[in-house]
């Protein structure tokens, strides 16, 4: 009976996993269809597969937009970490006046809807002549991900017993030494999951990218929407473009899944 129960649970898990995975599978299948097969209702599984859409999208210069997205995601994450991690460290482990208010202020920057800030930002960047440059997206995404980095990293730093830091101080370590040699290695899993989340958010961001770029700094999500049209067939082409967009994230997630799960569940049992 117990064995049966176990197999049943395993089966249900597989079914659930398949349901979660199905949209990605469907995306991939659609990208291999001819446009007329992709738009057919009800959808069919029987078709002659083709790689023409991948070919077309590659020739259309998808690599350039992926490069833009990659530069923006990596650089903005780097800046967000550079500023966010030391801040989180200080807020978690040092006694700072009104540290809770500071924390709340950071998270409160996320309260305002993006649509509410876009016009002032647009005007600001227009007068700085920064519209349609990668720098503008790097700056905006770094600011966008700062609260995330700060909150995540602060909770990881908080989990470190203060005694460890005291012990290192007793041994004569400087503040920086303690930070780089003791605390940072201890929150490595958390750091990696923060990096990944921050990068994924920057990689997928659409609204700012749409509003602040035109031709040179266009990123993947904006490029992908170009296929949507009211008067033509585009599902297969857009699916192929989406495959290009999700593959890097998928591979990155696959390589670091252990760290990601560990990072995200760190401190979860403490309640």
């Amino acid at each position: 009976m117990k064995k049966l129960m176990k197999s049943l649970v395993t089966l249900i898990t597989y079914v659930m996993a398949f349901i979660y995975f199905f949209p990605i599978l469907w995306l991939f299948i659609t990208s291999l269809k001819q446009e007329k097969d992709a738009a057919i209702i009800p959808p069919s599984f029987i078709f002659s597969p083709t790689f023409e859409h991948f070919h077309e999208i590659w020739n259309n210069g998808v690599a350039y937009y992926m490069l833009n997205s990659a530069i923006v995601a990596i650089a903005s994450t780097f800046i967000a970490l550079l500023l966010g991690v030391p801040a989180a460290y200080a807020l978690a482990l040092y006694r700072i006046k009104r540290s809770n208010d500071i924390l709340f202020w950071f998270i409160s920057t996320k309260f305002m809807p993006v649509a509410g800030v876009i016009i002032p930002l647009y005007l600001l960047f227009k007068s700085l002549n920064l519209l349609d440059t990668l720098s503008v997206l790097i700056l905006v995404y770094a600011a966008m991900n700062m609260p995330l980095v700060l909150w995540m990293m602060r909770s990881f730093f908080k989990d470190i017993p203060y005694e460890l830091i005291e012990a290192s101080q007793v041994d004569g370590a400087t503040g920086l030494n303690t930070f780089f040699k003791i605390t940072l290695p201890l929150v490595k899993s958390g750091l990696i999951s923060t990096i990944l989340l921050s990068m994924v958010f920057a990689w997928n961001e659409f609204f700012f990218a749409l509003s602040l770029t035109y031709t040179s700094a266009k990123t993947m999500p904006v490029y992908m929407t170009a296929f949507m049209t009211q008067e033509g067939l585009f599902w297969a082409k857009m699916s192929a473009a989406s495959v290009f967009a999700i593959v890097p994230v998928l591979i990155l997630g696959w390589f670091s899944q252990k760290q990601l799960v560990r990072g995200l569940t760190m401190g979860a049992v403490k309640g």
């Binding site: 259309n60 210069g61 690599a63 350039y64 992926m66 490069l67 990659a70 990596i74 031709t215 040179s216 266009k218 890097p248």
Partner: peptide, 13 residues
């Protein structure tokens, strides 16, 4: 990933 992407010439829009 970066290497592959940088190897691709920027397209004309």
């Amino acid at each position: 990933f970066g290497l592959i992407l940088t190897a691709c010439a920027p397209p004309e829009e």
